[in-house]
Computed example of a mutant assay.
Amino acid sequence: MPGDPERGPVSVVVCTLGREPRLRGTVRAVLDQTHPDLELVVVDNDPASGRTAALLSGVADERLRLVTQPTRGLSAARNAGLAAARGGVVAYTDDDAVPDPTWIAELLDVLDADPAGTVACVTGRVLAAETATAEQEWFEDAGIFDKGTERTVWALDPAPSGLGTPGTHSPFFPYTAGEFGSGNNMAFRTEALRAIGGFDEALGAGTPARGGEDLDIYRRVILAGRTLVYTPSAVVRHHHRESTRALRVQMFGYGVGMAAGLTKLLAHGGRPALAVLRCVPRGLHMLLWPTSARNAKLPAETSRLLVALELAGYLAGPLLYARSAARVRSRRRAPRGAVEGGRR
């Protein structure tokens, strides 16, 4: 697909602590995209360790840039990538994920079909890179990342026509936001993401809130009156957690992140807070009732401990969000930003 001179290159951002040896595979998969007009911004979120630079040594491609962000947290790292992005579209994937060769081309196909610019965000399908362990197989069967095979348009009524099937508005729309996509496969019009302030640095991995920054940004896109499209043809393959311990930590973190994002809405007040409060009875039923629509979809062999850990995360989320938000406030006046390193 030829580049759009007005849009410029697509900026792909991958954030890392340098602990994931699969990072080199992620980098190679991005650089091997069928859409060649791109830049790859790798954000080193632990630059003092030197691990990321070591992992990328020997990768010779002028499209690759290394940016450092010493402030720990996935949202801070993603915002550093956003600040460094030169393209009109910025896409995100993770250092334990492998995009299919047509990933960027398929994301752009949605944006190119929307000349009016109402679509601010496009998410894609996330499938297992492998199911070599029982834990990986459970995660894939639970459908936590995979949002299905139908292109779906999410917006406040009325949804734009011609872009896909309008998403069904549940009583929780758009506040839970889990049906919109996953943070390891998403792209934004750069100006739209900057206009809503980027990612909330009180949320996400590496903060006390542990997650939820992707769901928060999806909510904010919708509440800002913009459109989000999920397209299953833009595929990323993710290496799910391989061990029981890692999966347990992940499920607890998901509960914390969801509750933290909802706590943020309540703390900010206004119509969203009232809407969330009205959803509390339904939400408790969804989480606790064994035959609820959510729980009925879980694989039959789901461990009670996994469910309990996620629920424990929901209980801990409000306190952990308060702690995380306080940390952000305490450093608000401190110098911040990314320092761009040389090309590697």
Rank of each mutant, 00 (worst) to 15 (best):
A205D: 06
S182V: 03
F145A: 10
F145D: 02
P174S: 05
G206C: 12
A159H: 07
Q250A: 15
A142T: 07
G124P: 11
S243K: 04
L156G: 04
G183Y: 06
V249Q: 15
L228C: 05
F180I: 08
D200S: 15
G167F: 06
T176F: 14
R151N: 01
F172S: 15
A113N: 13
I222N: 02
E130Q: 08
G162D: 13
A134D: 15
R194T: 14
H240A: 14
P158E: 13
G164T: 15
F188I: 12
V221E: 08
T133A: 08
G204A: 15
H169T: 09
A113H: 14
G181H: 07
V229N: 13
R194P: 08
V236C: 06
E150L: 13
L156H: 02
W154L: 10
D146Q: 12
D109Y: 03
A224R: 14
D214Q: 09
V119H: 09
R151C: 02
G148A: 05
P158Q: 06
H238R: 03
Y175S: 00
A209S: 15
M186S: 14
T152S: 01
L163V: 07
A142W: 10
E213W: 05
R151W: 05
T131E: 07
P166Q: 01
F172I: 00
R151G: 12
R245F: 04
P171E: 04
V236N: 06
D157H: 05
T207N: 11
T231V: 15
I217Y: 00
T133N: 05
V229W: 14
L163P: 10
I196D: 12
A234V: 12
L108A: 04
H238I: 11
L228Q: 08
T168K: 01
I144C: 09
W154E: 00
A177E: 05
D141F: 01
G164K: 11
R248P: 00
G212P: 02
